[in-house]
Amino acid sequence: MASKKKRSLNAQNDRWVVIAADSVVDAAKSDGSDPVFVRLKNPATDVASLYLFGAGDADVYEVKAFDEDYRSWFIGQTVQRDGRLLYITPVDPLYLLLPYIIKAGKEQGKFQPVEQVLMDEDFPACRRLLRCARTRASLPQVAEEKEGNGQRFYKYSQEKTVEWLKKKVDRTVEALKKSNISVGGGVKSTTYIRTKQECNVQEEDYLRYAHGLISEYISEDLSKELQKILQLPEVSSPKDLEPPSKKRKVSDTPVEAGEDYTKFNGASFARKPPKKMSAAQKSLAKADKTGMKSMSAFFSPKAKTEKN
């Protein structure tokens, strides 16, 4: 019997499947200008991430990829090997401005025009944020504002910023409650009746989940500050106390999968057949994993996974 072929490297892609906010398309229709993809500094990680400016830079969007291993597309009468699905969703430009305003506040500590603050030779496209419709209106939510000589000057305010972020969290909590996203350690289930006490736990679960989501768009320091204001206690579950190398291992199943008993209660109980352990997983399971953490040091932050 012929042996299975190894996966080869995926050569550069020339097609992308995206799901984009209608405003990307509609705005271009009305003002005739085409949107552009640019790289900006990711406010949470400080590394380059892909964004899209639309409507003549009035709107800004981020690009995220749904990237499950072993996926390809059929598009009409063609195959596309790259099975990713890209999402183009609106981004609040304030998240992207915030690192610059904070930096200026730390370095200068004085009122400045935003044009002076927003300079970054590593990310020249950040100037486009100045043209975003929401930028001017929302700056006072994170900075003190002064006017003089027909110009506006800003100075970072942590109190204002945290207040603003709190509102963001509240909004997100509301949206989470309306959705069927499971935010708790367990899983929501229609057949599972929660006690009152668990309802209270639930409230904190929503808050923690929303805080985690907002933290994807702010620095770690600000995230911790926000956590304090929200009075979210530090999680000290055994999972978090474990050294990082043991935390995830090979498994990449959702966090709650292990404790999901509720799924077995439902009438629609239909479990996926267990996935067979591949030869690779088997040999990996056997491999000595001590020292894995230190090995991580060899991977530069920008190293790409060998996804092929």
């Binding site: 590394v47 040999s283 991977f299 932050p301 060998e306």
Partner: peptide
Amino acid sequence: DDDEEGGEKAAARMNCASMLSYFGKSRT
């Protein structure tokens, strides 16, 4: 996803992938 990939090389690939995904791709 249930292909029997040949031994060590595949394990190395997975090892690498899982470690990178833990440390979050392109994250400092």
